[in-house]
């Protein structure tokens, strides 16, 4: 199963690498969001620095939605999902593979956005511990967001109005991730005195719940079609 998942993830990432949509559209969108937040907050240095964790995660979620939508549409637009199933791939493997692919894309997105908030908003990473917290938070949140995204992407795949349906279904689900990841970043970037590591428990729980559900439910969603 793991090999199959890697295969799917590799395939998706290769498609992304060739089409360059993530680089030419999703990443610029995320940077654009950072710029718009600065306008919205009147370029107030203090406010931007204090709120950079929250703004960062809102930008990640919105840009991430684009990436999720793309990766799911990849399969369902040309019904390649049927070919995947015909090639004897189990739904859980497909789910795991797509989750991996989206996680990698989200991590790339976050790497760029961290540079963005450091540069534009004057946020600062003070210690190695903070950097580690930042990294672990990113990885755990990415897995959670990607798992939920893959699952809800399959849910809305191939139906009318999915472009508007996916955000309204997925964003409330991701609200706990936004809360947890923002708090953890608050600690890492020093904008609030909280224990960021404690928040990782919430993020980890979320990731586990959606991984388990995805592995169980993905098959139900791929039935017939």
């Amino acid at each position: 199963m793991f090999r199959d998942a890697l295969l799917i993830a590799g395939k998706d990432l290769r498609i992304e690498a060739r089409s360059r949509v993530v680089f030419s559209q999703v990443l610029p969108f995320a940077i654009l969001a950072l710029v718009l937040f600065a306008f919205a907050l009147d370029a107030d240095r203090v406010a931007l620095r204090d709120f950079s964790p929250g703004l960062f995660w809102v930008a990640v979620l919105f840009a991430g939605l684009l990436a999720i939508q793309r990766t799911t549409n990849l399969e369902h637009d040309d019904s390649t999902i049927d070919s995947l199933r015909l090639s004897a791939l189990e739904p859980p493997s497909i789910f795991a593979g797509k989750t991996m692919a989206i996680s990698v894309q989200l991590l790339a997105l976050q790497a760029l956005l961290v540079l963005g908030v450091l540069m534009f908003y004057g946020a600062a990473i003070d210690s190695l511990g903070d950097a580690a917290l930042l990294g672990v938070t990113s990885v755990v949140s990415s897995v959670g967001v990607a798992a939920a995204g893959t699952l809800y992407g399959a849910l809305t795949a191939g139906i009318r109005g999915r472009e508007t349906l996916l955000p309204i279904l997925l964003l409330p689900v991701l609200a706990p991730v936004l809360i947890g990841a923002t708090r953890a970043f608050d600690d890492a970037l020093g904008s609030a005195a909280v224990n960021g590591w404690a928040w990782l428990a919430l993020l980890g729980l979320f990731a586990v719940v959606y991984l388990v559900f995805g592995l169980l439910a993905y098959g139900i969603l791929l039935e017939e079609s």
């Binding site: 409330p172 689900v173 706990p176 809360i179 708090r183 928040w199 919430l202 559900f213």
Partner: peptide, 24 residues
């Protein structure tokens, strides 16, 4: 089928949302 999956997932979100907002 889609709706049933969403309804079940959403019910599991109830404690997660409540606790995360609480800790928030």
């Amino acid at each position: 089928r889609r709706s049933a999956v969403v309804a079940i997932l959403s019910a599991f979100m109830i404690p997660i949302v409540r606790n995360s907002v609480d800790w928030w």
